Simulated scan of single mutants.
Amino acid sequence: MVEKRGSSLWLTHALMILGVLVVFFPIWLAFVASTITQQDISQAPMPLWPGDRFLENYTRALFSGVNVPVATMLMNSLIMALGIAIGKIIISLLSAFAIVYFRFPGRNVFFWMIFITLMLPVEVRIVPTFEVVAGFGMLNSYSGLIFPLIASATATFLFRQFFLTVPDELAEAARVDGAKPMRFFIDILLPMSRTNIAALFVILFIYGWNQYLWPLLITTDPEMNTIVMGLKQMFPSGDDLADWPVIMATSILAMIPPVIVVISMQKLFIRGLVDSEK
């Protein structure tokens, strides 16, 4: 391990602190703007310290909003993000398990058919996907928001590569002990895949949380709006005036769930990305 000493250590820390400040300053300004009045925001220079309207502005955002209460949109986004992340992980685990541990004709062909779908993201197949969802009557529903996005070739590939590194002796020992395939999967493979699952969950949760085009296409009921859609709708059109304190409060609230997920799973997330002995 290389240790930095003296001036190089101070320079490294100074650059790191500078980078943190550059990234954090816009977030700090958004938080300050969410605690002051519209008049304070429009005046130059804008205050750099929080005001006394924190409770008022956040209460208006959560329970009043512009079109739909932010609390409703946060719940919609949370259900969608959790459904996409959990669904992708479950389907990818099972498909990778079947491809690696079951011998059937054309299993590699099926794997590469799954892998090729990386070239067909939702944006490319959005019209036929919409027709299928509409045909099943899943417009303006959580199932319509989640099911078309839960297949993941990337996660299937990552789990397959990890399963290939698991010693064959484990599977043989489980077979000798009389363990059925699903028992081997649940008792041995799942605990060994814990860090991989955590890393993928963080990435997939943020992917689901940030979805905009698909929810915009299949939802016409304002009560099904996600937080990303709600933020876009809050910006004024024409000569309308923006309620900037509420918009900034909504922006801060929209960042809280992904931040909680990243912080709570930080150790497992890092281990899942860099640890070679998972």
Rank of each mutant, 00 (worst) to 15 (best):
D52C: 01
L213T: 14
L273A: 05
I206K: 12
F54Y: 10
L9N: 03
S141R: 00
A174N: 11
M234S: 05
V100H: 07
M255V: 13
M255T: 14
M73T: 15
P69L: 05
R125G: 07
T154V: 15
F205K: 09
K88C: 11
L118P: 00
L118F: 10
T72N: 05
D40N: 06
M224K: 13
I36Q: 01
I114A: 13
M234K: 02
I84M: 01
A96M: 08
T219H: 12
T195W: 02
I260N: 10
V22M: 14
V274I: 12
F130P: 07
P26F: 07
G19F: 15
F24C: 13
P50V: 01
W10C: 00
L268T: 11
V176M: 14
L93P: 03
R125H: 04
A155P: 05
E277K: 15
V132N: 03
D240W: 04
W209C: 10
L18H: 04
F104Q: 09
I146S: 09
K4N: 00
N210P: 04
I206C: 07
I150V: 15
F205C: 09
L158H: 12
I17Q: 05
P26Q: 04
N210H: 09
V109L: 15
S152M: 12
N108Y: 05
E172S: 14
A179K: 09
R107W: 08
Y212D: 06
V66D: 06
I247D: 01
G6K: 03
I263Q: 10
V132T: 12
F104Y: 15
I116S: 13
V246K: 03
G6C: 06
Y101G: 01
S152D: 13
R60E: 13
K88T: 09
Y58L: 06
M138T: 02
I91S: 13
V202C: 11
I263M: 15
T35M: 04
G178T: 07
S92F: 12
K180V: 01
T195L: 11
M80T: 12
M138Q: 14
D239Q: 14
H13N: 08
E172Q: 15
N67C: 00
H13V: 03
G106R: 13
V2W: 10
F111Q: 05
A249H: 01
I17D: 06
D168F: 02
S7P: 02
I36T: 04
F185P: 11
I186D: 02
I260W: 07
L145R: 03
L273I: 14
P128A: 08
A171L: 10
L62V: 06
P128M: 08
S8K: 09
R194S: 15
T165E: 09
A85G: 08
P257G: 11
I114H: 05
F205L: 09
I197Q: 03
G178M: 10
F147T: 12
R53I: 00
S92P: 10
F130L: 14
